[in-house]
Design a protein around this nucleic acid. Sequence first.
DNA 1: ATAAGGCCCTGACCGC
DNA 2: TGCGGTCAGGGCCTTA
Length: 270
Amino acid sequence: MPELPEVETYIRELRPQLAGKRVVAGEVKWPRIIATPEPALFTELIRDRRFDTFGRRGKYMLLGLDSGETLIVHLRMTGEVRIHPASVLPDKHTHLLLTLDSNERLHYRDPRKFGRLWLVDDPESVVGKLGPEPLDEGFTPEGFASRLAGRTASIKALLLNQSIVAGVGNIYADEALFLARIDPRRSGGELSMPQVSVLHAAVRAVLQAGIEGRGSSLQSYAPPSGEKGSFQENHKVFRRTDLPCYQCGAAIRRIVLAQRSTHFCPQCQS
DNA sequence: ATAAGGCCCTGACCGC
DNA sequence: TGCGGTCAGGGCCTTA
């Protein structure tokens, strides 16, 4: 579900809700949700830790604890973090509960159980393989071009590859390709340098706009405050199959690329 | 090293 | 109402 703008919104909203609070107890209800360490050790290690720093890398949330360790959370498709009063009971999709010293509990909820949490000393052990942060200085047109060079896979598939650039998912990949007027089926390695530059700027622009809209809220997704994001109102192609392109009026097409639904304007994007 | 496909899971939705 | 099929914003693992 969440991509970079949604995860960034998550971190911004979790910070005021969690900062300085201490974990009194942890309860893991679905062990596979904890990637590392073993669930028993996880609950032992997180007890008495205070939430201290709040960061993001790609689609991963980095919750720094006062012990120096980091609780890493990836929501994947349907993960959800909420801070509720202690009186709120977990539902059947709640897989982790952290009791806080504020008479509240952190609920990790995830109907599809794809999300994962890690408790580690060094976050790099989890996020070290990611490509550059697209909104940082380190993401340059030249660096982007060198990562695409020689690749035969579609540019859509390559945008979804987190080791090329971190944080782009299905929505923002389609939106960036539309903004850059590039056909998602083109192979990444055959794009010209000007096209790579335009796409680089487009990726940054759609992610920045996504953050400003506090993310896209499709279906039931909402950030921790419960107040939905608005960027879905600005989608130009995503889930607009058969609707007219805002640029040229042609019908937006939906195809499958890299096993993911892909939306584009057959007229504007080549 | 790269690319393609399966797989992990459950719920919502659609047509019959 | 029930049933089967499809779809869902992700990424790891295996295979070729």
